[in-house]
């Protein structure tokens, strides 16, 4: 079976000399949900727009569903959500979606999706809020029941309830055998939905791993408040735990990898409050960089 996405040595240098991608080799398997994560300006949109032949790589190749991306047929069963989707201001959502459907050889439908997301179909798009326009843009990416959906920062502008609905749509799409490729600037946003995650930074694919392994390596900042002062040494001894600050009943910790040893140690104490700040992408990058350097 062909990979859903396959890039080999994909590089892009923009006019003016900015190297946005350098030698990206990426394989996304059919039927998986792939999270493509990196900070703003890392090259996420450049890679996505090269896949769709909107921009031409300076070197390397990309294949979608086994067909070279330079061939328009490679996009026949591909849905796409741009990072900054622009819709026709004067058309209603319905007219815009109908028009986009007619651009493609395969049929589709959007009524069920519109109902699911509570999208306003009959008002001119210029009258809709950014979040409501984003719903229409999302619907157009899924309405062909595509074999591959490529989504550039799909949840921007969506409220949390709609984001949850979106995640379940992604899961359903994957379980029906389609592939979902979505980008984000935060690991948190994709970790609940992606099977695997690729991290891009400075135009290079730094790491590709399953989400669990990615989280294993991640660093969390944990603050604990106890009922009474505790002995700092007990916590300093826990593997992966580093005491950043300790002041009587309050403790600030840096936890690398699994939370399990810390949670076990906390079990013997009277804990009043516990907060854990999620994995910081930058620190995960650093982890992978150090590994590459070794």
């Amino acid at each position: 079976m062909d990979a859903a996405i396959e890039t080999r040595g994909l590089s892009k240098t923009y006019r003016g000399g900015v190297q946005a991608l350098s030698g990206v080799d990426l394989t996304v398997n059919a039927g998986e949900v792939f999270g493509f994560v990196g900070p703003n300006g890392a090259g996420k949109s450049t890679l996505i727009r090269s896949l769709l032949d909107l921009i031409r790589p300076t070197a390397g190749t990309a294949r979608l569903l086994g067909i070279d991306s330079r061939d328009p047929r490679s996009r026949e069963r591909v849905g796409y959500l741009p990072g900054d989707p622009r819709l026709h201001p004067r058309l209603s959502g319905r007219a815009q979606l109908d028009s986009l459907l007619r651009l493609r050889p395969v049929g589709g439908g959007y009524e069920d999706l519109a109902e699911r997301f509570g999208a306003a179909l009959d008002r001119p798009l210029r009258d809709l809020s950014k979040g409501n326009r984003q719903k229409i843009a999302l619907i157009q990416a899924f309405m062909q029941r595509p074999a591959l959906v490529v989504l550039d920062e799909p949840t921007s502008g969506l409220d949390p309830l709609v984001q949850e609905e979106f995640r379940s749509l992604v899961r359903e799409t994957a379980s029906s055998g389609s592939t979902v490729f979505l980008s984000s600037h935060s690991l948190d946003e994709v970790q609940h939905v992606a099977d695997r995650v690729g991290i891009i930074r400075g135009g290079r694919l730094v790491a590709v791993d399953v989400v669990e392994a990615m989280l294993e390596r991640s660093v969390r900042h944990v603050s604990v408040r106890f009922a009474e002062p505790v002995d700092l040494k007990t916590f300093a001894q826990i593997p992966g735990v580093q005491v950043v600050d300790g002041d009587g009943p309050s403790l600030s910790l840096r936890v690398e990898g699994s939370m399990e040893p810390l949670v076990k140690a906390l079990g013997g104490e009277r804990v009043i409050d516990l907060t854990s700040t999620p994995a910081d992408l930058e620190e995960i990058f650093l982890g992978y960089y150090q590994e590459q350097g070794e």
């Binding site: 909107l54 328009p72 490679s74 989707p85």
Partner: peptide
């Protein structure tokens, strides 16, 4: 310039 061609060109058209 208005970005309206992005989704048109992303369709399987030359």
């Amino acid at each position: 310039e208005a970005g309206l061609l992005e989704l048109v060109v992303a369709a399987p058209l030359k």
